[in-house]
Design a protein around this nucleic acid. Structure first.
Length: 301
DNA sequence: CAAAGTTCCTGCGAGC
DNA sequence: TGCTCGCAGGAACTTT
């Protein structure tokens, strides 16, 4: 599910639900996800008021009013289910059955993959579910955010300070394919496999083109790179809009609604017709760095 | 068999 | 030639 637009959609949903609320209870159902949970995570978060919900790259950063940050990364399959106060009584009935998931009835999941549960002072509950457990949860001092190992090597935010000049500087001398570079979080953050494919297709650039071919000899960006930077921004913005437009429905926070899938031009469309105006190409699937790449060989050069 | 993410390891090439 | 450094590619994590 989660590349930048999906994480941003989740951020907005959590912000609406959590800011100003006090986390009255935190329950963990295992020792960790990708990494062990911090030993004192429950104690650190319990009783804390939420001040803000931020996003950096694909990381959610939840600030408490006393200067802590709860970091949450969704990995490949993580999501939050928000249970409103009026739904909680239903939830409580279910939870009284020990043989059954606490949330199974409510979320449609059997509960085996519900790893974290957060309860708030307004009676609402949030459940973090993550079957593959590639997600991350951590807590640190906001004052030490700059030295967090997970955050310190991240590149620019694509929708903020990122420019073609910056991209050109980082592309210089790189011989790896541009698709691989787009996935490198030191180059630009938030772009994953789907939007890398989509942005390259929009830009008519082959995913296999060597990265340094997108930089001029004088170090300035080529027209192609300028277009790519622009199209990365455009495709991310369009996807955020689709996600945001469904946020009225609270369930969207779990990522199942409002996904950009219906708008993909190439991703997961192997053997389908290229949808670009005037292009009669057929979408191909290739493998780069062990990951699927989708492209139209006709219009992407 | 493949999967939306990230980190770590190995192997190779460039350069000294 | 030999060594080190850094980059590039691949495997690994896990479950459905």
């Amino acid at each position: 599910m989660p590349e930048l637009p999906e994480v941003e959609t989740v951020r907005t949903g959590l912000e609406q639900a959590w800011v100003g609320r006090v986390m009255t209870e935190v329950h963990l159902r295992r020792d960790g996800l990708r990494f062990p949970f911090p030993k004192d995570m429950v104690q650190q978060l319990t009783g804390k008021k939420i001040e803000a919900v931020r996003r950096r790259a694909k990381y959610l950063l939840i600030d408490t009013t006393d200067g802590l940050v709860f970091l949450s990364h969704l990995g490949m399959s993580g999501r939050y289910t928000l249970i409103t106060p009026s739904e909680v009584p239903r939830y409580s009935e279910v939870s009284s059955s020990p043989s059954h998931s606490k949330f199974g009835e409510l979320t449609g999941y059997e509960g085996r993959h519900d790893h974290m549960e957060f309860r708030f002072d307004d009676g609402s509950v949030a459940v973090y579910t993550d079957p593959r457990r590639f997600g991350i949860a951590d807590v640190f001092l906001r004052a030490e955010e700059q030295i967090q190992p997970l955050l310190e090597h991240l590149g620019p935010e694509p929708l903020e300070q990122w420019t073609a000049q910056d991209a050109a500087r980082r592309c210089q001398g790189k011989r790896s394919p541009i698709k691989t570079t787009l996935l490198d979080q030191r180059f630009v953050v938030g772009v994953g496999n789907i939007y890398a494919c989509e942005a390259l297709h929009r830009s008519n650039i082959s995913p296999t083109r060597p990265t340094n071919k997108l930089v001029r000899k004088d170090g300035r960006p080529t027209k192609a790179l300028t277009l790519l930077v622009e199209q990365v921004k455009e495709v991310l913005k369009a996807a955020i809009e689709v996600g945001g437009s469904t946020l009225n429905d609270f369930a969207a926070v779990d990522g199942t609604l409002g996904y950009f899938g219906h708008h993909f031009q190439v991703y997961d469309r192997e053997d389908g017709p290229c949808l670009k105006e005037g292009c009669n190409g057929t979408i191909e699937r290739i493998v780069q760095s062990n990951r699927s790449t989708f492209l139209c060989p006709r219009c992407q050069k």
